[in-house]
Structure formats: structure tokens, C-alpha cells
């Protein structure tokens, strides 16, 4: 197990190194930020001094190694636009995205999986048909439209919930969180629902397909022949047997939503990282883009590592390097 972990961590480091090169070269290719930053009426002298100040007179390779050596000192550079360290800029926004996305993905999983198991267990029942209809809606209705409808319904017409912003926050471990205040929750619930809908649909379908398959297996039949109750069979046998694809999709959805919750963040003016990255792309704010993309890659690598560990915990057949 520990050799497996070590191997995966080494793989992760290699992926991160390759990603940093690709990201750096890619962002370099997008365009020259100086065209945006320096006013057209500036003199040649001012131009050259500004370019030198940002270190853009050096070659790409030199710039890359400068970036890497700074990275190892915990410095991801300064934003061109905000004139602030990139790390602090992202650090201020990340908790907002984190709490929004975690609420959405966890909620979708803990609601979707039981619904899916039920739909797979009693596929012919009316309830199962309703659940499946909801999941089809979740798949096919565009996120931005649902967001607008949610605002129209609950914020504008009914006036029950606020239409945007984060609400009151509390500082825990030096970071501001909304999920620890009631007002924060009232702001969180609409965007989280909006984000969760698609994931809910996926979780329902995964759990249903898995349950339908497992219910026909000899293992379930044998458990029934041993006199186990249906509740025990579902909670002890079936849930664990169907969990591998669910954990996989959970990890993928968590990572991709953390990186790309931008549509929902924009609609609900949620001050997360999604808005930051869109602005930085518009302004060619290279340090922010590079740092954000590398952090995102790191996030994917970490979450995938956790998913792999989850596999080994859930399915003994996948454990390697274990003496028989």
C-alpha cells in the first residue's frame, strides 16, 4: 500500500512538472500582455522600462526557470492588474468556491445515490419513474437557465432567498466562510442547488445502473437465500458493490466543478475563483492565469490520488503489494 502511494505521488509530481511547462508555454502563446498594460501613447523608453520591470525582456526559458525558482519559495508572482501577490488573490477567492462546490457535490451525492438505489431496486414503481424523469431534466436543462429561473422564482417572485453574494461570513482558521452562518447558508443554497442539479442526475443514473446490475447477481441471491433482509442487502451488500464508479465520478465532478464553476458564480455573483480567472484571461494577466491553471492541475492530481486510495479502501481486489 505505501509503495503504491509513493508511486502515485511520484506520478503526480511528474504530471505537475509537465503541466507547468505546458501552461507556461500556452499562456505565453496567447498574446503579449504589454499590448494591454502599456497605454499606446507611452514613449518607447517607458515601454522598455515597463517590459523589463515585469521581466518580459527575458527569453521564455529564462522566464520559466525564474517562475519555478520563485514557486519553490512560495511566490507565484504578482498580478499585473491588481498589483497583489497572486497567491493572496486566489487564496481570498478559493474558500468561496470550495464551500459552494463541496456543498453542491456532497449534496448531489448524498441525495442522488439513495434515490438511484431506490430507482434501481424498484425500477417499475411510480416513484422510480419520477426520479428518472427528474434526472433526465437535470441532464438536459442548461445550467445558466436553471440559475436564472431559480433567481426569478425564489429571489424575485417569492423573495425568500437573496439573489447573489456570499452573505455574512465568519473567520475560521483565518479564512472567511459562509457555511458557518445562517445568512451565509441563505446565500449559498440557490447557487449550490444550481450547481448540484447536473451532478444529482449523474449520481442517480450511476447508482441506478449499478443497483440494477448487482440485484441480479448471485451474491445478492445468495444473501437472500441466507435470509438477509432487503434493507441489509441494500445497505451492506449493494451500496459497497456499486461504490467504485460513484467514487470515480465524485472525484472527477468535484475537481472539474472546483475549476469551472464559473457560470454559476457569475449568475449568482459569487466571489469565487471562476470570476477571477475569466477576468485574468480578458486582461492577459499572465501570473494569475499560470498560477490558477497550475493550482487546478494540482487539485486534479490530489483528488485523483484520493480517489485511488478510496478504491483500495472499498475494493480489496484492487489492493496491491499486500502479502497474501
Amino acid at each position: 500500500m505505501s509503495s503504491f502511494l509513493l508511486q502515485r505521488i511520484l506520478q503526480g509530481i511528474v504530471i505537475m512538472a509537465v503541466m507547468s511547462v505546458i501552461v507556461f508555454a500556452g499562456v505565453y502563446a496567447i498574446g503579449n500582455p504589454m499590448e494591454v498594460l502599456i497605454p499606446p501613447e507611452a514613449t518607447q523608453d517607458v515601454r522598455l522600462r515597463t517590459i523589463a520591470r515585469f521581466g518580459l525582456d527575458k527569453s521564455l526559458v529564462e522566464q520559466y526557470f525564474l517562475f519555478i525558482s520563485n514557486l519553490f519559495q512560495g511566490d507565484l508572482g504578482q498580478s499585473y492588474i491588481y498589483n497583489e501577490p497572486v497567491l493572496r488573490l486566489i487564496g481570498n477567492r478559493l474558500p468561496a468556491t470550495l464551500e459552494l462546490v463541496l456543498t453542491a457535490v456532497l449534496g448531489a451525492t448524498f441525495i442522488g445515490v439513495p434515490l438511484g438505489i431506490y430507482a434501481g431496486y424498484k425500477p417499475e414503481s411510480a416513484t422510480a419513474r419520477i426520479i428518472m424523469a427528474v434526472s433526465i431534466l437535470g441532464f438536459s436543462v442548461p445550467t445558466f437557465w436553471v440559475g436564472l429561473i431559480l433567481i426569478l422564482t425564489f429571489a424575485v417572485s417569492l423573495g425568500w432567498l437573496p439573489s447573489g453574494g456570499r452573505g455574512d461570513t465568519v473567520e475560521v482558521f483565518g479564512i472567511d466562510w459562509s457555511i458557518f452562518t445562517l445568512d451565509g447558508w441563505s446565500h449559498l443554497i440557490l447557487p449550490a442547488t444550481n450547481l448540484a442539479l447536473f451532478k444529482l442526475a449523474i449520481m442517480i443514473r450511476l447508482a441506478r445502473a449499478g443497483t440494477r446490475e448487482v440485484m441480479l447477481s448471485d451474491a445478492v441471491k445468495f444473501a437472500r437465500a441466507a435470509g438477509l433482509s432487503e434493507a441489509t442487502i441494500l445497505s451492506r451488500h449493494v451500496l459497497k458493490l456499486i461504490s467504485i464508479p460513484i467514487v470515480t465520478v465524485f472525484g472527477l465532478e468535484l475537481a472539474s466543478t472546483l475549476a469551472f464553476a464559473v457560470v454559476t458564480e457569475t449568475i449568482f455573483s459569487w466571489p469565487g475563483v471562476g470570476k477571477l480567472i475569466i477576468d485574468s484571461i480578458k486582461n492577459l494577466d499572465r501570473p494569475v492565469m499560470v498560477a490558477y491553471l497550475i493550482l487546478t492541475a494540482g487539485l486534479f492530481v490530489t483528488i485523483n490520488l484520493c480517489v485511488d486510495i478510496g478504491y483500495a479502501v472499498l475494493d480489496p481486489r484492487l489492493r496491491r503489494g499486500r502479502a497474501e
Binding site: S217, A219, F222, L241, D315
Partner: peptide, 10 residues
């Protein structure tokens, strides 16, 4: 089939 009757994850 004894390969299929026992639950592989318990």
C-alpha cells in the same frame, strides 16, 4: 458458481 456467490468487497 462459488466465484459469484460471495460478495467480493466484504
Amino acid at each position: 458458481d462459488p466465484m459469484m456467490t460471495l460478495n467480493p468487497v466484504l
